[in-house]
């Protein structure tokens, strides 16, 4: 939690950044989720604001995080998609200077009247499941439709050659597994070997990849519309099949018979294709799907290490490092044991 002095500093910082008169901060509270950053909500009160106040979200770096990410990257992703048919909050300020709030942070607009839903709820959207599903896959398609060179992303992440997308991502997450594992990981290592033996076809065009697009990382209005896509901290430039495969990982599906627990698979793909203007590549999808299982496992291995080493005592890390790792180990083992010596 921020101290009173830090909150006062934040008020002064906002007044300076937004070029308003004096700002007073009210209703400052921490909100759950987002183990990669501490997340707070607050109202900023100033005579210059319409209605006298504006709602904001503050995301501050934690002592350690689930994912070693650059806040500049997440900030750039929000700016890249704001006002472009992808619902995201407006990014307000990015501060790397640790003298302001003790750790780097960024501020974004708060989306009010939006609820988030856990993928582990039995029926997170009730009668609005299909409507949310249509929005979910259409928005993912809209992200894939944007030319990455027409965004701020090339300024903060490297741009791979299309044929190198898979190798770059696999190298990255294999390194995470090798660095953070507290014990041998025979299932993860088998998946890595299988992925290296069967590289996917490259994408015809690169796209911005959200990197964590799934149920649980968006807000919805309770009436079937998605109001904000959040948690862009793993965004990068790559193959859009990667996002689709991650969104469809069985871990996120409350009903595993449906794509992301939301729609029939064919309908989900149809909405994605319509919105993206791209063709679904079933063969590449198979590779990225196994990769999604492995990437999940890598993240949970890192969570486990951060919790074990005492760098971050958030119980969500104990949960993801244990439960989610157990699920992904089984998902991969069930899958790969069906096809020995070779294919995916």
């Amino acid at each position: 939690m921020l101290t009173h002095d830090e909150i006062a500093t934040l008020a002064d910082y906002l007044a300076q950044t937004l070029q308003t008169g004096p700002v007073r901060i009210e209703n400052f509270s921490r909100i759950p989720g987002g183990a990669s950053r501490e997340t707070y909500r607050f109202d900023a009160v100033a005579a210059d604001f319409d209605g006298g106040s504006r709602g904001f979200i503050l995301r501050r770096d934690p002592p350690d995080s689930l994912i070693d990410t650059e806040r500049a990257l997440e900030f750039a992703a929000y700016r890249s998609f704001y006002g472009r048919g992808v619902p995201v909050p407006e990014a307000i300020a990015l501060v790397a200077d640790e003298s302001v709030l003790g750790r780097p942070f960024f501020i974004m607009e708060r989306i009010d009247h939006g609820a988030s839903s856990s993928p582990f709820q039995p029926d997170p959207f009730g009668p609005h499941r299909e409507a949310i599903g249509r929005d979910f896959f259409s928005i993912l398609g809209a992200i894939a439709a944007v030319d990455p060179y027409d965004t701020e992303m090339p300024g903060v992440v490297d741009t791979p050659a299309p044929e190198d997308c898979w190798r770059r991502e696999l190298d990255r997450w294999q390194k995470v597994i090798e660095t953070d594992s507290l014990e041998p990981q025979p299932i993860a290592m088998a998946a890595i070997r299988r992925l290296r033996r069967n590289p996917p076809q490259p994408p015809p065009k690169l796209a911005v990849v959200h990197g964590d697009y799934r149920v649980g990382n968006f807000l919805h209005d309770g009436a079937g519309r998605i109001t904000a896509i959040l948690d862009w901290e793993m965004a990068h430039i790559g193959d859009p099949m990667e996002d689709l495969a991650w969104a469809l990982d069985p871990l996120w599906a409350s009903n595993p018979a449906l794509a992301a627990g939301l729609l029939d698979f064919e309908e989900a793909i149809r909405h994605w294709q319509q919105a993206s203007g791209r063709r679904f590549n079933a063969e590449a999808f198979q590779w990225w799907s196994l990769f999604a299982n492995l990437k999940g496992l890598a993240i949970w291995i890192s969570s486990s290490k951060a919790y074990h080493d005492g760098k971050n005592a958030d119980p969500i890390l104990a949960f993801s490092g244990w439960y989610c790792a157990t699920r992904h180990n089984k998902i991969i083992a069930d899958r790969l044991s069906q096809t020995t010596w070779g294919g995916l």
Partner: peptide, 16 residues
Amino acid sequence: AKCWDVLKLGADHRQL
């Protein structure tokens, strides 16, 4: 196949 049997045994028994 037997390597996978061993791996699946552990994965199955640890399901929560």
